[in-house]
Nucleic acid binder design. Sequence first.
RNA 1: GGGCGAGUGGCGGAACUGGUAUACGCGCACGACUCAAAAUCGUGUUCCUUACGGAGUGAGGGUUCGAUUCCCUCCUCGCCCACCA
Length: 824
Amino acid sequence: MQRYNPKDIEPKWQAKWETDKIYQASEDTSRPKKYVLEYFPYPSGAAMHVGHVRNYTIGDVIARFNRMHGFNVLHPMGWDAFGLPAENYAIKNKVSPRLAIDENTARFKRQLIQMGFGYDWSREIDSTDPKYYKWTQWFFLMLFNKGLAYQREALVNWDPVDKTVLANEQVIDGRAERSGALVEKKSLKQWFFKITDYADRLLGDLDNLDWSESIKSMQRNWIGRSEGMLFTAPIKDSQLQIQTFSAHFEAFSADTFVVIAPDHPFLKELLKGTEGEKHVLDFAAQMVKKRDAQGYSDEENVEGIFTGRYIEDPVGNGDLPIWVASYALAHYGTGIVKCSAHDERDFKFAKKYNITLKPVLFPSDEKEAEKVRNLEYCYTDMRNGILSEPADFAGQTAGENREAIIKYLEDHQLATPQISYKMRDWLISRQRYWGAPIPIIHCPLDGAVPVPDDQLPVVLPDVESYEPSGDGRSPLANVPEFVNTTCPKCGGPAERETDTMDGFACSSWYFLRFADPHNDELPFARDKADFWLPVDDYIGGAEHAIMHLLYARFWTKVMYDEKLINFEEPFTTLRNQGMILAPNGLKMSKSKNNTIEPDEIIEQGYGADSIRIMELFIGPWNQTANWSVEGMGGAFRFLQRIWTLTQEHQDAKEQAGGDQSHEQAILKAAHYTIRSVTKDLEQLGFNTAIATLMEYVNNLYKLKSQDHFADGEAWNFAITSLLQLVAPFAPHIAEELWSKTGHTGSVHTSEWPAYDEALLIEETLTVVIQVNGKLRGEINVSRDADEATVVASAKADQKAARYLENQTIRKTVYVPNKLVNFVI
RNA sequence: GGGCGAGUGGCGGAACUGGUAUACGCGCACGACUCAAAAUCGUGUUCCUUACGGAGUGAGGGUUCGAUUCCCUCCUCGCCCACCA
């Protein structure tokens, strides 16, 4: 018998599967469809490591398991290839990013194939292919025409030395990664998608998704809906008025001052004509600068300055001073807040600047209430706190009166209900070369004009230099042939938009393109999308928990509204695999030089199948695990034992003459394993499914070593089932042994084995004897024995009897087929 | 500060709706094969105790005949978000 050598068999089957097209999907309506998808990878310079491999292994096992269950499985793969690393590579080597991407995708694809992943490569897509981004641009225009894409000024990271806009990941501790210069904020006109219009739907529809609670709660958190009240107040000695938002408005009678964000657009107008106008503006500008450099985290150093202005508070709190405060956020609520003794930040700020505070909310404990009255600490319990003002609610808890307080404020015309979100619109402009060009033409007469459909795609031109333009625009601005064009509306001279789109735009619809990847007339044909979508199982890392998943959900809802598709949520179930860390528990990264690549393990002779087993056996699929080098040996030994077991069977086949009970034992082991593995896989219990298979193999070795086979039928069934059960995990060895044991066709298109429940019914069962809940013995009883018989034989059990001697049994607990517990 | 999740042998982990804690694997020890080693096969492996027996799932308490599992209090770790009014 040949030794198990993965190098001999794995490449052979990979080629054969591709030739036989066994993973190619078509719109065959005779079987139910199943769309299994892993996030399409970014083929960066770094090769794929065993952490990535886990993601694809999970998807592949799910796809194969479903295929063997008779599903028509779509399991595609493609490339999310726009982005910074390719552009950096291009600048450094003065070559087209295209070149870098082509090299990287080729390597990535080879790595995926050598892992034995069953993708339908006829559907391969590449987001940087003009045939693909034509439709990304088409979707941009759809959003634009619906009023969901708009331009406004926004801040970017500006490197004053290299004269370029930096991505967030190019800024490290406030300095440019490359030049080391202190990064400045610069205001540029940029494109946004109005995702906030969809906030409520994005939030509400989460409830019906089969996603992990943690991802859902991250999305809820990110959207950050809060219901509150909007107050309006006139500014004293002025025609102006302000609005403030409060989600914790119950203690509105406590408001004693107002804060406004230092970068609030209204600040200038507010200060106009005040004595300290210039001084306050300068101070505010400084606060903004400090905050941009250090972030918000410096909680101890809140600072502020009095504006010289007051509001006349309509709710009856008198004239309240307006302060500029570093902790106020211009972009949340209205950017202006009425403040009181019942907010930690307000409290701290007021203490620092000796601003009057007036508590109106108190704990029920009088001693504690006295402390709050004396401003010894900040009391914020809006549920249990007892109000002293306004008179209508005096003596009652804030929490129980929230609704009544809303009504009170509305009836007295003091405030109106308002909903506020943390989520902001999606900034999609990138001042970068390597992205899909934004298909807009700027005309001096007609403004921003969409590129007509028949002129799509706006092709990214080849350029000589990928260096930044120096004025904050992308390198495309240096290409006159690209920039200068005519206005589609008036025909006059006009300029193309030079910003490109955020890569997340490309990945917001790719799952639809897989349904119809080669369509030149449409992004996808309606019937094909209807057939395959939504994605049934989406498998990916938690790094996509917020942005990608939210953006893709947003685009899907827009398409639904446009009647392009018939579903509102793109991913029915979402599975987030756990990360694989280096053996020392650190994150794998190229820079730390601690990555482990599948190539080297395959080279060492373990093979792809062993890696796949290891990826899943290492622990629950959704939990983080440290890679174990020693563990690879265990995975390999398991497969090797299958190899040997299966072929010794061939040698031993001639031997005859067994007994029926032995045959029964083999069948029982097989059916038990089929049931157990099937149930585990239905619940994604990959690690326990593999454990069961290991136990099964161990058992078959023992049964075999008694070296008597009956006519071999039971044994044949046992081995055939073993190969099928192991096929999703270790596709190569399963296929090789499948053919070696005389099967035709592929094990991967064979039908998943069925089990016979009747065979698994045990005639005798072990029943445990407990005394006061402690294990004291066990007895074997027949399955249909009645309670009295079982209890009697339990009492008679020698071991247990010792504990019952001279004792009164106060109670006997009997659990059928499980245990007897004597309470003494 | 807010949200989510997790604490079980030397290690990764298992235990279905409360019913024999530690399946499976790694590691380790011993044995078989071998001149020897590797590979392979087999046996053992929670801790304390010579034994009888006892303890034991992060800590403490509770419910129960019985708790890794349910409830309360606390501790530790991981991830995500975070001056979000």
